[in-house]
Simulated assay, not measured.
Amino acid sequence: MGKEMFIHISKCKLYAKLVGENKGKPTVIMDAGYGDFSKAWNSVLKEISMLSSVLIYDRAGLGRSEPSSNPRTSREMVKELKELLSEAKIKPPNILAGHSFGGVNMRMFATEYPNEVSGLVLIDSSPEDNRERFLPTMSQDFQQVYNKQFVYEGNYDEFMESLKQLKDTKQKLNVPLIVLSAGKKAHYSMGSQKLFWILFFS
């Protein structure tokens, strides 16, 4: 079942759930994709929690968490996550796992707090060159649908600012890294799928 918590941070209250026991191992911190929240991990939570403790949470304004007056950019979300971990007494170093936009946040967290990260798992993570290199390889119809999705958590400009924040760090991370990709996607062009592999595996 796990331990459910509502953690007070400076601007709001965040929902989090801690499952499993760490038994001296790093806790796995999981961050969902844009507009999604902790329920996104339900199908894998039990299996991962057999290895160590796992913390899933809802970013501000999503799921059971209160909205925050902070900008909905990656840097602000990372600050909020740092506060949550401190208040919940989750001791570093931890393993960070992020899906899609959550991958951007976890990469930013690892850049801001490198000594608190023992490993990084990126699951179909959004590349920082998304607008400049990735989107132009897609059809116009796809790009229009993509650009209209930013209504759940921050707007298009805040999402792109998050990618810029990550790109501007220009810092190489010295942590173990695993990159997971869903493989071929019917709605992705061949060029975009090849580019994804170049961005993450070259």
Rank of each mutant, 00 (worst) to 15 (best):
M5L: 15
M5W: 02
I7C: 11
H8R: 15
K13H: 07
V19W: 04
T27R: 04
T27M: 08
I29S: 02
D36T: 11
F37V: 03
A40C: 08
L45N: 07
L55C: 13
I56W: 10
Y57I: 02
R59Q: 14
A60K: 00
L62W: 04
L62H: 04
E66A: 08
P67C: 09
N70P: 00
R72I: 02
M77F: 09
E80V: 00
E83T: 06
K91L: 15
P92Y: 06
P93G: 12
P93L: 11
P93M: 12
L96C: 00
G98A: 09
G102C: 02
G103W: 01
V104E: 01
F109Q: 00
F109C: 00
T111V: 12
L120M: 09
V121P: 06
I123C: 10
S125E: 03
S126T: 15
P127E: 04
D129R: 06
D129V: 08
E132T: 11
R133N: 10
P136S: 06
T137Q: 09
M138R: 14
Q144Y: 09
M160C: 11
K164W: 09
D168F: 00
T169D: 03
N174M: 09
V175Y: 10
P176I: 06
L180I: 15
K185N: 13
Y188N: 12
L195P: 02
W197M: 11
L199V: 08
F201M: 14
S202V: 10
